[in-house]
Simulated assay, not measured.
Amino acid sequence: MQPSVSPTAIFEELSEFVAVHMKSCREMVHPAPWFEHKTHHDYDLWMIRKGSLQLQIGDQQYAVSAGDVLFFYPDLPYMASAQDEDCQFIFIHFDFGMGEQQRILDDLPLSGIIPQPLLKREWELFCDGFDQRESGAAGSRLYLKACLTALIARIIELYGTAEYEQHVTPFMNGALVKRQWTALEPVLRYIQEHLHRPLKIRELAQQTGLSEKYFIAVFKKTLGITPGQYIFQIKMNRAREYLYTRHYNVQQIAGLLGYCDAFAFSKAFKQYYGVAPSQFV
Protein backbone atom coordinates (compact mmCIF):
# COMPACT_ATOMS: atom_id res chain seq x y z
CA MET A 1 0.00 0.00 0.00
CA GLN A 2 1.37 3.43 -0.94
CA PRO A 3 1.70 6.02 1.86
CA SER A 4 -1.13 8.54 2.00
CA VAL A 5 -0.42 12.03 0.71
CA SER A 6 -3.91 13.45 1.16
CA PRO A 7 -4.23 17.01 2.53
CA THR A 8 -5.56 15.54 5.77
CA ALA A 9 -2.45 13.37 6.15
CA ILE A 10 -0.17 16.32 5.37
CA PHE A 11 -1.81 18.49 8.03
CA GLU A 12 -1.39 15.63 10.49
CA GLU A 13 2.31 15.29 9.67
CA LEU A 14 2.94 19.05 9.83
CA SER A 15 0.64 19.96 12.73
CA GLU A 16 3.56 21.59 14.56
CA PHE A 17 3.73 24.20 11.78
CA VAL A 18 -0.01 25.03 11.85
CA ALA A 19 -1.03 28.37 13.38
CA VAL A 20 -4.63 29.51 13.98
CA HIS A 21 -5.22 33.21 14.63
CA MET A 22 -8.77 34.09 15.71
CA LYS A 23 -9.12 37.77 14.78
CA SER A 24 -12.68 38.34 15.95
CA CYS A 25 -15.63 36.33 17.22
CA ARG A 26 -19.06 37.78 17.94
CA GLU A 27 -22.71 36.83 17.93
CA MET A 28 -25.03 38.74 15.61
CA VAL A 29 -28.82 39.00 15.72
CA HIS A 30 -30.49 40.33 12.56
CA PRO A 31 -34.25 41.03 12.74
CA ALA A 32 -36.11 40.24 9.52
CA PRO A 33 -36.02 41.65 6.95
CA TRP A 34 -32.21 41.82 6.78
CA PHE A 35 -29.77 42.04 3.86
CA GLU A 36 -26.02 42.45 3.43
CA HIS A 37 -23.61 42.36 0.50
CA LYS A 38 -19.97 41.97 1.58
CA THR A 39 -16.53 40.56 0.96
CA HIS A 40 -14.29 39.56 3.89
CA HIS A 41 -10.51 39.63 3.83
CA ASP A 42 -10.05 36.70 6.24
CA TYR A 43 -11.42 33.18 6.48
CA ASP A 44 -14.94 33.48 7.85
CA LEU A 45 -17.15 30.95 9.67
CA TRP A 46 -20.80 31.53 10.48
CA MET A 47 -22.50 29.19 12.94
CA ILE A 48 -26.27 29.63 12.54
CA ARG A 49 -27.87 29.29 15.97
CA LYS A 50 -31.43 30.45 15.20
CA GLY A 51 -33.52 31.16 12.13
CA SER A 52 -32.57 30.74 8.50
CA LEU A 53 -31.12 32.82 5.70
CA GLN A 54 -30.67 32.88 1.95
CA LEU A 55 -27.20 33.12 0.47
CA GLN A 56 -26.16 34.09 -3.04
CA ILE A 57 -22.65 33.48 -4.44
CA GLY A 58 -22.39 34.63 -8.04
CA ASP A 59 -25.51 33.33 -9.75
CA GLN A 60 -25.98 30.42 -7.30
CA GLN A 61 -28.46 30.60 -4.41
CA TYR A 62 -28.41 28.53 -1.22
CA ALA A 63 -30.78 28.01 1.71
CA VAL A 64 -29.08 27.97 5.12
CA SER A 65 -30.80 26.68 8.26
CA ALA A 66 -30.19 26.74 12.01
CA GLY A 67 -27.36 24.33 12.83
CA ASP A 68 -25.53 24.85 9.54
CA VAL A 69 -21.99 26.20 9.37
CA LEU A 70 -20.98 28.55 6.56
CA PHE A 71 -17.34 28.65 5.55
CA PHE A 72 -16.30 31.66 3.44
CA TYR A 73 -12.91 32.09 1.82
CA PRO A 74 -11.19 35.51 1.72
CA ASP A 75 -12.23 37.93 -1.01
CA LEU A 76 -15.35 35.97 -1.91
CA PRO A 77 -18.32 38.33 -2.55
CA TYR A 78 -21.68 37.18 -1.21
CA MET A 79 -25.20 38.41 -0.55
CA ALA A 80 -27.02 37.18 2.56
CA SER A 81 -30.59 37.91 3.59
CA ALA A 82 -33.29 36.89 6.06
CA GLN A 83 -36.80 37.67 4.88
CA ASP A 84 -39.32 35.83 7.06
CA GLU A 85 -37.65 35.33 10.46
CA ASP A 86 -34.89 36.73 12.63
CA CYS A 87 -31.46 35.24 12.14
CA GLN A 88 -28.86 34.71 14.90
CA PHE A 89 -25.35 33.42 14.30
CA ILE A 90 -21.80 33.45 15.65
CA PHE A 91 -19.25 34.70 13.15
CA ILE A 92 -15.51 34.08 13.38
CA HIS A 93 -12.84 35.86 11.34
CA PHE A 94 -9.59 33.90 11.42
CA ASP A 95 -6.32 33.04 9.70
CA PHE A 96 -5.12 29.48 9.27
CA GLY A 97 -1.50 29.16 8.23
CA MET A 98 1.25 26.60 8.00
CA GLY A 99 4.87 27.68 8.07
CA GLU A 100 5.17 30.79 5.92
CA GLN A 101 1.95 30.07 4.01
CA GLN A 102 -0.60 32.16 5.90
CA ARG A 103 -3.59 31.03 3.83
CA ILE A 104 -2.84 27.35 3.48
CA LEU A 105 -6.54 26.46 3.02
CA ASP A 106 -6.84 28.47 -0.21
CA ASP A 107 -5.61 25.48 -2.22
CA LEU A 108 -8.41 23.23 -0.92
CA PRO A 109 -12.10 23.46 -1.94
CA LEU A 110 -13.45 23.79 1.61
CA SER A 111 -15.66 26.85 1.31
CA GLY A 112 -19.30 25.86 1.58
CA ILE A 113 -22.31 24.97 3.70
CA ILE A 114 -21.76 22.19 6.24
CA PRO A 115 -24.82 20.70 8.00
CA GLN A 116 -24.60 20.40 11.78
CA PRO A 117 -24.76 16.57 11.95
CA LEU A 118 -21.29 16.44 10.41
CA LEU A 119 -19.91 18.84 13.03
CA LYS A 120 -22.14 18.07 16.02
CA ARG A 121 -19.40 17.50 18.63
CA GLU A 122 -17.23 20.39 17.42
CA TRP A 123 -20.29 22.65 17.17
CA GLU A 124 -21.24 21.96 20.79
CA LEU A 125 -17.67 22.47 22.02
CA PHE A 126 -17.34 25.79 20.22
CA CYS A 127 -20.70 27.15 21.36
CA ASP A 128 -19.85 26.11 24.93
CA GLY A 129 -16.49 27.88 24.64
CA PHE A 130 -18.16 30.98 23.17
CA ASP A 131 -20.71 31.17 25.97
CA GLN A 132 -17.94 30.73 28.55
CA ARG A 133 -16.00 33.58 27.00
CA GLU A 134 -19.07 35.82 27.01
CA SER A 135 -19.53 35.10 30.72
CA GLY A 136 -15.91 36.07 31.41
CA ALA A 137 -14.82 32.62 32.65
CA ALA A 138 -11.10 32.28 33.30
CA GLY A 139 -9.18 30.61 30.48
CA SER A 140 -12.16 30.77 28.14
CA ARG A 141 -10.34 32.66 25.34
CA LEU A 142 -7.68 29.98 25.05
CA TYR A 143 -10.35 27.28 25.22
CA LEU A 144 -12.35 28.97 22.45
CA LYS A 145 -9.28 29.08 20.19
CA ALA A 146 -8.74 25.37 20.83
CA CYS A 147 -12.39 24.73 19.90
CA LEU A 148 -11.95 26.69 16.66
CA THR A 149 -8.86 24.62 15.82
CA ALA A 150 -10.84 21.42 16.42
CA LEU A 151 -13.69 22.69 14.23
CA ILE A 152 -11.37 23.47 11.31
CA ALA A 153 -9.55 20.16 11.74
CA ARG A 154 -12.89 18.35 11.50
CA ILE A 155 -13.80 20.21 8.29
CA ILE A 156 -10.44 19.20 6.77
CA GLU A 157 -11.06 15.61 7.89
CA LEU A 158 -14.52 15.60 6.27
CA TYR A 159 -12.98 16.80 3.03
CA GLY A 160 -10.30 14.10 3.22
CA THR A 161 -12.87 11.32 3.71
CA ALA A 162 -15.18 12.74 0.98
CA GLU A 163 -18.04 13.19 3.47
CA TYR A 164 -17.80 16.91 2.78
CA GLU A 165 -18.14 16.31 -0.97
CA GLN A 166 -21.17 14.12 -0.51
CA HIS A 167 -23.10 16.35 1.84
CA VAL A 168 -21.96 19.89 1.10
CA THR A 169 -22.33 22.02 -1.99
CA PRO A 170 -19.14 24.06 -2.05
CA PHE A 171 -19.17 27.55 -3.51
CA MET A 172 -15.75 28.48 -4.77
CA ASN A 173 -14.20 31.30 -6.73
CA GLY A 174 -12.19 29.28 -9.27
CA ALA A 175 -9.33 31.78 -9.13
CA LEU A 176 -8.75 30.84 -5.51
CA VAL A 177 -8.17 27.14 -6.15
CA LYS A 178 -4.55 26.61 -7.19
CA ARG A 179 -4.44 22.83 -6.68
CA GLN A 180 -0.69 22.74 -6.14
CA TRP A 181 -1.30 19.81 -3.79
CA THR A 182 -1.91 17.49 -6.73
CA ALA A 183 1.31 18.58 -8.44
CA LEU A 184 3.28 17.69 -5.30
CA GLU A 185 1.71 14.27 -4.72
CA PRO A 186 4.44 12.30 -6.57
CA VAL A 187 7.26 13.91 -4.60
CA LEU A 188 5.51 13.60 -1.23
CA ARG A 189 4.92 9.91 -1.86
CA TYR A 190 8.52 9.52 -3.04
CA ILE A 191 9.83 11.08 0.18
CA GLN A 192 7.78 8.75 2.36
CA GLU A 193 8.90 5.71 0.37
CA HIS A 194 12.60 6.65 0.53
CA LEU A 195 13.11 7.90 4.09
CA HIS A 196 15.64 5.10 4.58
CA ARG A 197 18.28 6.98 2.59
CA PRO A 198 19.51 10.57 2.09
CA LEU A 199 17.36 12.53 -0.36
CA LYS A 200 18.62 15.24 -2.70
CA ILE A 201 16.61 18.17 -4.03
CA ARG A 202 17.55 17.23 -7.58
CA GLU A 203 15.90 13.80 -7.40
CA LEU A 204 12.82 15.25 -5.71
CA ALA A 205 12.43 17.88 -8.43
CA GLN A 206 12.65 15.13 -11.04
CA GLN A 207 9.51 13.53 -9.59
CA THR A 208 7.54 16.66 -10.55
CA GLY A 209 9.28 17.49 -13.82
CA LEU A 210 10.25 20.93 -12.48
CA SER A 211 13.62 22.62 -12.24
CA GLU A 212 15.21 22.53 -8.77
CA LYS A 213 14.70 26.26 -8.24
CA TYR A 214 11.06 26.23 -9.34
CA PHE A 215 10.35 23.03 -7.41
CA ILE A 216 11.59 24.60 -4.16
CA ALA A 217 9.47 27.71 -4.81
CA VAL A 218 6.31 25.66 -5.54
CA PHE A 219 6.88 23.43 -2.53
CA LYS A 220 7.33 26.34 -0.14
CA LYS A 221 4.41 28.29 -1.59
CA THR A 222 2.11 25.28 -1.24
CA LEU A 223 3.13 23.92 2.18
CA GLY A 224 4.74 26.97 3.75
CA ILE A 225 8.03 25.16 4.46
CA THR A 226 11.04 24.00 2.43
CA PRO A 227 11.50 20.41 1.21
CA GLY A 228 14.33 20.02 3.74
CA GLN A 229 12.09 21.10 6.62
CA TYR A 230 9.39 18.71 5.43
CA ILE A 231 11.78 15.74 5.25
CA PHE A 232 13.20 16.51 8.70
CA GLN A 233 9.69 16.76 10.19
CA ILE A 234 8.61 13.45 8.65
CA LYS A 235 11.74 11.74 9.95
CA MET A 236 11.21 13.07 13.46
CA ASN A 237 7.57 11.94 13.36
CA ARG A 238 8.63 8.45 12.31
CA ALA A 239 11.40 8.37 14.92
CA ARG A 240 8.86 9.11 17.64
CA GLU A 241 6.56 6.35 16.35
CA TYR A 242 9.41 3.81 16.18
CA LEU A 243 10.46 4.61 19.74
CA TYR A 244 6.90 4.25 21.01
CA THR A 245 6.66 0.73 19.57
CA ARG A 246 9.82 -0.36 21.47
CA HIS A 247 10.60 -2.71 18.58
CA TYR A 248 13.74 -0.91 17.39
CA ASN A 249 16.96 0.28 18.98
CA VAL A 250 18.59 3.62 18.14
CA GLN A 251 20.93 2.08 15.57
CA GLN A 252 18.05 0.43 13.73
CA ILE A 253 15.98 3.61 13.71
CA ALA A 254 18.94 5.55 12.33
CA GLY A 255 19.09 3.09 9.43
CA LEU A 256 15.34 3.22 8.81
CA LEU A 257 15.49 7.02 8.54
CA GLY A 258 18.56 7.34 6.34
CA TYR A 259 21.09 8.54 8.91
CA CYS A 260 24.70 7.42 8.48
CA ASP A 261 24.98 6.23 12.09
CA ALA A 262 23.29 6.32 15.49
CA PHE A 263 25.25 9.40 16.55
CA ALA A 264 23.96 11.52 13.63
CA PHE A 265 20.39 10.38 14.30
CA SER A 266 20.64 11.05 18.06
CA LYS A 267 22.01 14.54 17.40
CA ALA A 268 19.13 15.37 15.04
CA PHE A 269 16.57 13.86 17.44
CA LYS A 270 17.88 15.88 20.39
CA GLN A 271 17.90 19.03 18.28
CA TYR A 272 14.16 18.56 17.64
CA TYR A 273 12.83 17.02 20.88
CA GLY A 274 15.35 18.39 23.38
CA VAL A 275 16.24 14.95 24.76
CA ALA A 276 18.20 11.97 23.49
CA PRO A 277 16.25 9.07 21.96
CA SER A 278 17.16 6.87 24.90
CA GLN A 279 15.45 9.34 27.27
CA PHE A 280 12.38 10.02 25.15
CA VAL A 281 10.04 7.16 26.14
Rank of each mutant, 00 (worst) to 15 (best):
209 G>Q: 04
163 E>M: 11
177 V>E: 04
89 F>G: 09
56 Q>I: 05
169 T>K: 01
251 Q>F: 06
103 R>Y: 11
12 E>D: 13
243 L>Y: 10
74 P>R: 09
11 F>T: 07
21 H>C: 06
73 Y>D: 13
66 A>N: 03
211 S>Y: 04
21 H>I: 11
231 I>H: 03
79 M>A: 08
14 L>E: 07
81 S>Y: 05
31 P>H: 08
25 C>N: 03
69 V>D: 01
155 I>C: 06
107 D>A: 11
110 L>C: 05
116 Q>D: 06
100 E>G: 11
6 S>Q: 06
121 R>D: 14
110 L>G: 09
145 K>E: 10
37 H>L: 02
238 R>K: 13
280 F>D: 00
92 I>T: 13
114 I>Y: 04
167 H>A: 07
264 A>T: 13
117 P>Q: 02
177 V>S: 03
211 S>K: 12
168 V>Y: 01
105 L>F: 01
187 V>D: 02
166 Q>T: 09
279 Q>N: 13
63 A>I: 00
101 Q>H: 12
72 F>H: 08
257 L>D: 04
198 P>M: 05
92 I>N: 05
200 K>P: 01
85 E>Y: 06
256 L>N: 11
141 R>K: 13
229 Q>K: 09
55 L>E: 01
44 D>Q: 14
278 S>G: 12
67 G>L: 06
179 R>F: 10
35 F>D: 05
258 G>R: 04
205 A>Q: 06
3 P>Q: 07
126 F>Y: 11
252 Q>V: 02
248 Y>F: 14
261 D>P: 04
215 F>P: 10
156 I>G: 00
259 Y>L: 08
154 R>N: 08
198 P>I: 08
8 T>H: 10
222 T>Y: 06
252 Q>D: 07
168 V>K: 00
208 T>C: 14
15 S>N: 15
93 H>L: 13
213 K>W: 09
234 I>Q: 12
80 A>L: 10
248 Y>T: 11
200 K>D: 07
206 Q>A: 14
119 L>Y: 01
91 F>L: 14
170 P>N: 11
263 F>N: 08
218 V>L: 15
37 H>V: 04
85 E>P: 01
209 G>I: 12
131 D>S: 11
120 K>P: 00
184 L>V: 03
